[in-house]
Simulated assay, not measured.
Amino acid sequence: MKSGLTIRADNLQDVLDALKQLGNKDVLVGIPSDRAERQDGMEINNAELGYLHSFGGTIRVPEHTTTLYRQVDGEGNFKHGGKFVQQSKSNFATDHKVASYTVSLPPRPFLEMGIASSRVKTTDLLKQAAGAMLSGNAAQAEIMLNRAGMVASQAAKQVITAGDQLTPLSERTLQARRSRGRTGTKPLYDTGQLLRSITYVVRDKNA
């Protein structure tokens, strides 16, 4: 007796292969090695600094030279009481040697906060990637994975640029910034090097 059920195609193996391929992909958000290098003479790189900021710790800033910027009037007198200004607003600069010192960092888990705040969007994009893979559209799945990485990395950057979720800077750190002509008060945002180093990669797990 016929059941009335007609099997037009058995695509079970295709589905299993698609799931295996998707399961072999990682979307990683953070600071990869090719963006880790710093340009300010610190003994640790951006990846190591990001780790310390996330979990807290102590770092040593080596002896280095810094340039201070101020304004002078037409008679050669300091303006604004000799206070430091941004380079773009200065007409007088001096170089100074800064002795080595240590800095204690409280935990400021910017990556974790960013990933958590973007979870709804990234979960939806990952679901779309899975659907595309099951439909045999590997290229579209790759696009969705990249979009998920972009959303999460931008959310982590937003934690830094907003600054309101992070432990405020100590007065000592603020004084150190002012001594270098920097007036910003946001944690993790001084030169912008750490912020610019944050990105994502999509790669095979065995890469």
Rank of each mutant, 00 (worst) to 15 (best):
Q158H: 11
V98M: 10
N91I: 01
T94H: 00
E37D: 14
D40M: 04
Y69T: 01
S88V: 05
K186V: 02
R38T: 14
P109Q: 01
L22W: 11
D73H: 00
K205Y: 08
A148W: 04
D124T: 15
G114S: 00
V61K: 06
S90R: 01
K25V: 14
T191A: 15
A162W: 01
R108W: 02
Q87L: 05
S179A: 13
L166H: 05
R196I: 07
Q193A: 15
V85F: 02
P62D: 01
R35C: 02
A18G: 06
R119F: 13
I44W: 09
I115W: 01
K89Y: 01
L166R: 07
I160P: 07
F84E: 08
R108H: 02
Q71G: 07
T122G: 13
F78P: 00
P168T: 10
N46F: 08
S117G: 10
D190K: 10
L195I: 09
R8Y: 12
R38Y: 14
P109K: 10
L28M: 14
N206F: 11
A130W: 03
G76V: 08
G23E: 09
H64F: 04
K89M: 08
G56D: 07
T183K: 13
V120R: 15
N206C: 00
A155Y: 04
I143V: 11
F78R: 06
G74N: 05
